[in-house]
Design a protein around this nucleic acid. Sequence first.
RNA 1: GCGGCGUUAGUCCAGCCUGGUUAAGACACUGGCCUGCCACGCCAGCGACCCGGGUUCAAAUCCCGGACGCCGCACCA
Length: 565
Amino acid sequence: MINVNHERTMTVARKRGFLWSSFEIYSGVAGFVDYGPLGATLKNKIMNRWREFYVVREGFYEIESPTIMPEEALKASGHVDHFNDPMTQCKECMDVYRADHIIEDATGRDVEGLENQELTEIISDEGIRCPRCGGHLTHVWSYNLMFQTLIGARGKKTGYLRPETAQGIFIPFKRLLRFFRNRLPFGVVQLGKSYRNEISPRQGVIRLREFTQAEAEIFVDPEHKTHPDFEEVKEDILRLYPAGRQMEESGTVDMTAAEALEAGVISSEVLTYHLCLAKRFLMDIGIPEDALRFRQHLPSEMAHYAIDCWDVEAFTDSYGWIEIIGIADRTDYDLRSHSQHSGEDLRVFIEYDEPRRIRKRAVKPDMGKLGPKFRKDAARIASALSEVDVEEIEKALDEEGRFILEGEFEILPDDVSFEDVEEVVTGRKVYPHVIEPSFGIDRIIYTLLLHSLVDDGERTYFRLPPHVAPVEVTVLPLVNREEMVMTALEIERNLRRSGFIAEFDSSGTIGRRYARADEIGVPFAVTVDHETLEDGTVTLRNRDDCSQVRVKIEELVPTLEKLRG
RNA sequence: GCGGCGUUAGUCCAGCCUGGUUAAGACACUGGCCUGCCACGCCAGCGACCCGGGUUCAAAUCCCGGACGCCGCACCA
């Protein structure tokens, strides 16, 4: 369908300084890449463009947290459990299995939390064999997708390189909430490196062990999953591949954002809005619309925390459709979990439009009685009583003459009294839900390069939009004559002073120099020719159609600024 | 992780089977020349045998191990 060429793209990218595999002189390590001079520039421009969309346009704020995280934090997020699986492999057919699953299937035993050694022993004691071919199984090893390290000089504390940037936002949630003056919705973003120790990363820049993410965590009221600017995007066309259509293999469907929301294909307005925004971003940096589709996660593949999740997928010739962005409704999973593990209340107080009066019956402990009776436990008992259902206490005292708290403390009718109180409730405390657009920057750059490469037999060049092209303008003397060279050098210098990434090139024929600049996607070429020396005009050449216009040297900067956008 | 195939200048590659020359070529790049507007004018130059071990008088070449790459299987909450 779409004409792209992975081999050609990567060859040019490597040759011209965009991207290559790391540590080459030490024979390389799979899953790591270097961004060369042009690649790093391109990446920075794309990340800055992303900030334009999410920080400037949406009003989110960017934070920066450590890439090394303590074990507790990742236990709370579920990563320690989910990224650390006991594995075993059949020695005959080479199938790999989760050791705990295979034991549970064979014996019905719950082996959660057992050590690898113990699991290995169970496999041999119970004579468990490969479910497919009956072959012997290897010893159990841990398959840990997170890079582990030790924190501190004595190395007592286990740490991990973060597997996603998102957790760095959830953890300081209370401070962030305060920064946003306790009001929902608000969004926080983080751009940076994350790490996953993939077993066999074989797809180059598609599956890296160290990769760059740009993530936004948008905290919303679970009862108001809307977006104030939805009107603006409601006519955007989305190429959707919902779970239902995947299961019946019926292909994608194009719908407007409003239609998709109306039909319930996408679960909420705010999620729909962010699908649109992601698409707008990708098109802004130069990825063609027809290279993209939105694929909904199947219920079976949805992460444990999400209720709806859409991947933005890009078409590639050698890897098929690849995920470049995940946009998920993570619900309140993360904040709830961090609350439980840390003991911090990470809920948000949401005021009602009108205060509500609630009549209810309350238990009132008589501390004059409870104090002498329970001594140092008294205070705790008093507060524990208020947690218990009032009716339950009243009923027990009525019918049995006593109430046993926590199976231990005997409360008698005289110890407490009951009263009807009217409470004014001005709001409720809730865990916000989290909408998370998560961008894989490396894959986006790969997709952009792949789809930008034009190789028409005549010329080879990256058709990058002017505002993301790493080199923005090249300045060339038509011939190597002193006056032309001097003029060209001066123009290059002035362009740099005016904020353009400009290059000067006098080596080889003019055609070769155009080709050289085209290949790395330089959108504009300024040529100093004979006429320049007479009337102070230069030619300004457009990369995509090779057309040229004459421009006065003084007008170069404003002209290029307009063209760059 | 398993199996198959592979790895030679910046890039694409010849040579390996059958061990022995100064490791060939093209493109790119650099310098010089050339009054030339779209890579294809001339001259010169730079630049490589993935790493480690073994066999041998001698290893790019044969053997073993490793790394990396491609393909298949597995894995990828």
